[in-house]
């Protein structure tokens, strides 16, 4: 259990640093900055207190906001996916995930992919709607969500396969 805490703390710090020092400066095509810190919420153990999870999500978003001068946009987007995660899991993995023996690594690749894509989609949708904050620019929101979402997804998948969580 203790090593579980430790791993999560290290993961938290490393993901924040990687996000703000590397990916926030990428500016691929001038505007694509993938958000890889979502992986924290993807990897976080399932059988944990939900309130703590939402609190952690808030803290994670806040740390990113601190660095990137985005007010509290990341926090709002992150708590939304932290709150909706159980719903998404039920949607993707079916009733299965409520069993004690359920592990993310035991599911099929397609299920993991769908789950990650869903997290990223909702996160980016909330983030860019709040950032742009006008429905006159709906097309811009869609463009940003799709292009940056795709970049985030690819990078998250790469990171996911690099640091696999099989051991947990």
């Amino acid at each position: 259990m203790n090593s579980g805490y430790l791993i999560n703390i290290i993961r938290f710090i490393l993901l924040v640093l990687v996000q703000v020092l590397v990916f926030n400066r990428l500016n691929f095509f001038g505007f694509i900055n993938p958000m890889v810190y979502i992986l924290f919420l993807y990897w976080y153990p399932i059988k944990q207190n939900r309130s703590v999870f939402i609190g952690l999500g808030f803290l994670l978003g806040l740390s990113i906001d601190f660095f990137s001068d985005t007010m509290a946009l990341h926090s709002a987007a992150t708590i939304t996916i932290a709150y909706l995660r159980p719903t998404m899991m039920r949607f993707v993995f079916g009733i299965n995930y409520e069993f004690q023996s359920f592990k993310l690594s035991n599911t099929t690749k397609a299920q993991q992919f769908t789950f990650l894509a869903l997290l990223i989609l909702v996160h980016h949708l909330v983030y860019f709607s709040l950032e742009i904050f006008s429905f006159a620019n709906l097309l811009l929101i869609v463009k940003k969500v799709l292009s940056i979402g795709l970049a985030s997804l690819i990078l998250c998948l790469l990171f996911g396969s690099l640091f696999s969580v099989d051991k947990e």
Partner: peptide, 23 residues
């Protein structure tokens, strides 16, 4: 928490960036 973050965000939409959330 959502209301908290929205309050921070919207407040700075109109005026200066919040004195707290900045790098």
């Amino acid at each position: 928490l959502l209301i908290l973050s929205l309050a921070f965000t919207i407040q700075s939409h109109s005026y200066h960036q919040s004195a707290f959330f900045n790098s």
